[in-house]
Nucleic acid binder design. Structure first.
Length: 481
RNA sequence: GGCGGCAUAGCCAAGUGGUAAGGCAGGGGUCUGCAAAACCCUCACCCCCAGUUCGAAUCUGGGUGCCGCCUCCA
């Protein structure tokens, strides 16, 4: 069965087809660089990173573009607040974006266009819109005339006449109405206020509106029509609706074949938003949790559903991640011991696992279902690992085990789950094997003499060094970690 | 006022006509001086009512509850 993706435009799952065979052009709306990104942003980036990875795994050549908005009121405000420039603020948070997203194992985009580097393209687009009667200048601003675009509202499923201006309660409707012909017209270009960064234009000194940059960037980096355009649910309207209006009015071609939107991250049941101030920065979260635990947390829910961010949920994901991580680390810990070579063959279990994984992912990226496959594989490995540690042998032939591991590693990579030994785990404890053996002998003597206090003292001492003892009938085994 | 979504175990969450994946937590057991680690086993009739069907968590109608969007937002 082929891959089916839910398309916001049609409100249906549709078989995925590309414009150009074998190639995918994909655009994801990135951050406005005025703060570290929050966990809601992170969800979008993780989700679409997985979409990209999966398409690549299926054999598509994916060109992935994600923008940085580096002109914006919020960046400007912050710059004023800190007595610095808009550029300095933007640079800082773009750099931070890379640090945080790298930790989340989000693949780098092929291109990261910025608004400030796209001014020419933006001006050209506005000019074309003006020429074709979709835009008008007004006191140094330029607005898009939504009534001129017959399809306005097709993405978000609304009609201009049915919309209630100001229903969100965030906008002062009267504010700009003087300059606009219609309440729902939106700014393509804003006249600069004194002291603000500004660019020359036929309409006077000013800067681009928010929506226009994406239209210009898509066009510049990917062409008139692309395969996937993605972002958070909230971008559906007005941002993406406006992008469509801007782009399609000029090109007369569909901006994107598939529009994908991810659901929100709620904080303890309540919507997380900048205005409510209850957002959680990814950077802060990663001080407490393994980035992969967070990734797992996100991937355990379907991307279009809202997900509730709670400490319990994160804990559960962190515990679950341990299992997958142990499976992934199997090779580096025991591969050599088991004499694994690079030879490959595939067992039936593995084929079934891959098929199940694919079935889940083909169904509009059912990562939750896909994860069940990973857990199954990881648990096998975990069991064998423990058998090895406790009994010194495995119940599955090493070669077959290797295929298990290989498959787990491959599928985990599609989901962007990567296991790394922490510094603690890599650095062996202060005690040498010989020292440990000596202590064990002492403890054994104490145990035989029923001096359990002494035996427990030694056990605790070793435990503090990260060494776990396994008392068995045939003697005591131990392992680090 | 308009548009849309969701409701599955203690928690999270798949499944969209054939008799409930998975994760976390829990319970029981084996082993042990006691632990720990490990292993094995175990844990749901799917918000309510009516209907369609041989058969429904899954379709239809009606309720109830929660949530999102209608120019800050991923």
């Amino acid at each position: 069965m082929p891959l089916a993706i839910y398309n916001t435009l049609t409100r249906r799952k549709e078989p995925f087809e590309t414009i150009e065979p074998g190639k995918v052009r994909m655009y994801v709306c990135g951050i406005t660089a005025y703060n570290y990104f929050h966990v809601g942003n992170a969800r979008a980036f993780i989700i679409f990173d997985v979409v990209r990875r999966y398409l690549m795994w299926l054999g598509y050549q994916v060109r992935f573009v994600q923008n940085f908005t580096d002109i914006d009121d919020k960046i400007l405000n912050r710059a004023v607040q800190e007595g610095t420039t808009m550029q300095a603020i933007a640079e800082r948070y773009i750099e931070a974006y890379f640090e945080d997203s790298d930790r989340l194992n989000i693949l780098r985009a092929d291109v990261y266009p910025r608004a400030t580097h796209t001014i020419d393209g933006i001006k050209r687009l506005i000019h074309e819109l003006e020429q074709q009667g979709f835009a008008y200048a007004s006191e140094g601003d330029v607005y898009y005339a939504v009534r001129q675009f017959a399809d306005y509202g097709k993405l978000s499923g609304r009609k201009l006449d049915e919309m209630q201006a100001g229903a969100s309660g965030r906008v002062e409707v009267e504010d700009e109405s003087e300059k606009k012909k219609d309440l729902f017209d939106f700014a393509l270009w804003k006249a600069a206020k004194p002291g603000e960064p500004a660019w020359e234009s036929p309409w006077g000194e000013g800067r681009p509106g928010w929506h226009i940059e994406c239209s210009a960037m898509v066009r510049q980096e990917l062409g008139d029509s692309i395969d996937i355009h993605a972002g958070g649910m909230d971008l559906q309207f007005p941002h993406h609706e406006n992008e469509i209006a801007q782009s399609e009015a000029v090109t007369h071609k569909p901006l994107a074949r598939f529009w994908m939107h991810n659901g929100f991250v709620n904080m303890d049941g309540e919507k997380m938003s900048k205005s409510l101030g209850n957002f959680r920065l990814t950077r802060d979260l990663l001080k407490e949790y393994d980035p992969m635990a967070f990734r797992l947390f996100i991937l355990q829910a379907h991307y279009r559903k809202p997900i509730d961010f709670t400490a319990e949920g994160l804990e559960a994901a962190a515990n679950g991640w341990q299992t997958i991580k142990e499976g992934l680390l199997f090779e580096s810990e025991f591969g050599a011991q088991l004499g694994w070579t690079s030879g490959e063959s595939v067992g039936t279990k593995i084929e079934t696992a891959i098929a199940q994984f694919k079935t889940a992912m083909d169904d509009d990226f059912n990562t939750s279902g896909a994860l069940a496959v990973l857990f199954d594989l990881a648990k096998d490995l975990k069991r064998e690992r423990n058998l090895l540690v406790h009994e010194g042998t495995t119940s599955i032939a090493p070669a077959e085990l290797q295929h298990h591991w290989h498959t787990l590693a491959e599928l985990a990579d599609v989901l962007g789950l990567k296991a790394e030994l922490t510094a603690e785990e890599t650095t062996p404890g202060g005690l040498s094997d010989a020292e440990i053996e000596t202590l064990l002998e002492e403890r054994q003597t104490a145990r035989k003499a029923k001096n359990f206090a002494e035996a427990d003292r030694i056990r605790n001492l070793l435990q503090e060094q990260g060494i776990t003892l396994i008392d068995q009938a045939g003697g005591t085994r131990w392992h680090r970690g």
